[in-house]
């Protein structure tokens, strides 16, 4: 059972992701902005981060950079959720240290598969 953190300012999407991942057997924590996400990352052990890029205050990219810059969290898997499919955004995401990305609107099934695949890869 993996510990997954979802950060998204849209409550409906937070609930959707949480529902699907719980269904898939993960332990999910949901927060609504980047600052809260970063606090969680520092306070409790996590196995994977799901970060919406566009959030008020601190963006998902900022959170990702912070996570990568701290040695204790540098290896934490990060999947970005973006509403923009332009390559520029995706490149920015990888540059910030993300491991994968998923574009809105996404299928919950696909999200779950990607999370599972990412966790499996980390375990190996």
């Amino acid at each position: 059972m993996a510990r997954v953190l979802i950060a998204d300012d849209d409550a409906d999407i937070r609930d959707l992701v949480a529902f699907k991942l719980v269904q898939s057997g993960h332990q999910v924590t949901a927060v609504e902005d980047g600052m809260a996400a970063l606090r969680m990352v520092r306070e409790q052990p996590l196995d994977l981060l799901l970060l919406d890029i566009r959030m008020p205050g601190m963006s998902g990219l900022d959170v990702c950079r912070e996570v990568r810059s701290a040695p204790e969290t540098a290896s934490l898997p990060v999947i970005l959720i973006t509403a923009r499919s332009q390559e520029g955004d995706i490149e920015l995401g990888f540059a910030a240290g993300a491991d994968d990305y998923i574009i809105k609107p996404f299928s919950p099934r696909e999200l779950s598969s990607r999370v599972t695949a990412m966790l499996t890869r980390v375990d190996r």
């Binding site: 409906d12 959707l16 566009r54 923009r84």
Partner: peptide, 18 residues
């Protein structure tokens, strides 16, 4: 607009799938 449309669309498509 595309961002603002995609976010609600994500909820629609996602919950629909569930």
């Amino acid at each position: 607009v595309s961002h603002e449309l995609r976010t609600p669309l994500t909820s629609i498509v996602g919950y629909l799938e569930l």
